[in-house]
């Protein structure tokens, strides 16, 4: 009797599974903080990114089947950057060549469960813009000679290298780990000098090289307290800021002379 019931249950489930539209696994993701404050003692901030792979809506837990791969891209505000090269001119090393990149993220870090080329193919990565090389797009213009194209490409490579050395670009291919079959967790320490702005954390769920789902969360990095006040004052009220700086200097100097008067 029990055996027959089990058989019919399985039959019904498989028929249902075949008739329902194919729905893939869903991703539920979360960040440990939505605002990161830079204050006077700021020396880097640790951010935890975690989430779970859920069954499609309407299916039971059994339909979650791995193995999965996760890629998380953390991207800062877009900036215009220049890359300069020093060359010897009459024996003196000076900046003589430069290439301007119109759209470079101020911060960019890729976290993954395993090496990117093991998770998916190059085409998917390029299409989604996942990877450091896609963050430094050399300028394209009409009548660009082959020589210029090669040069600009070289500068793009140098930009990625410089940004990596400054810890503003990064690739951590085994930083995400699955704590259970479906629950993943990753840690990222933002360096002390991350620029202010709105950041985007994009999480991709991969299985067998295919994107099953993706989620995006925003978080904000901003200076707070006195540092924010000083930074804003310098930008918004430069004249008052300059005069205040001079007054502080005059007072400090005067105080020093009075305190040490012999």
């Amino acid at each position: 009797m029990g055996r027959i019931a089990t058989f019919f249950t399985l039959l019904v489930v498989s028929v249902l599974a075949l008739t329902l539209p194919v729905q893939s696994q869903r991703l539920v993701s979360k960040l440990s903080a939505i605002e990161i404050s830079i204050n006077s003692t700021f020396s880097g901030e640790s951010l935890t990114l975690f989430g779970n792979v859920e069954a499609p809506i309407g299916a039971n837990g059994r339909s979650v089947s791995g193995p999965f791969d996760i890629i998380i891209v953390i991207q800062g505000p877009s900036t215009r950057r220049v890359v300069r090269e020093k060359t010897p001119q009459l024996g003196v090393w000076l900046n003589s060549e430069e290439v301007i990149f119109a759209d470079v993220p101020a911060y960019y870090h890729v976290l993954a469960t395993s090496p990117l080329n093991k998770i998916t193919d190059e085409d998917t990565l390029r299409k989604e813009g996942i990877g450091l090389v896609y963050q430094a797009n050399p300028p394209q213009y009409e009548n660009q000679s082959e020589e210029e194209r090669v040069r600009n490409k070289g500068f793009a490579g140098e930009l990625v290298r410089l940004m990596r050395e400054a810890e503003m670009f990064g690739l951590s291919e085994r930083r995400i780990s699955f704590l259970s079959e479906t629950f993943y967790n990753a840690n990222l320490t933002l360096p002390a000098n991350v620029p202010n702005g709105t950041y985007l954390a994009k999480t991709y769920l991969f299985s067998n090289g295919q994107i099953l789902d993706q989620k995006a969360e925003r978080f904000v990095v901003r200076t707070t307290g006195a540092e924010r006040f000083i930074g804003n004052a310098a930008r918004d009220y430069p004249l008052a800021y300059g005069l205040a700086s001079v007054l502080i200097a005059l007072f400090t100097g005067w105080l020093g002379a009075v305190a040490f008067r012999r």
Partner: peptide
């Protein structure tokens, strides 16, 4: 020294402003 000796890294980068995107 910084003017006449071959720099360790001839490349440098600087931020110009906000990006287009």
């Amino acid at each position: 020294y910084s003017l006449f000796v071959t720099p360790l890294d001839p490349f440098s980068t600087a931020i110009l402003g906000l990006g287009e995107a």
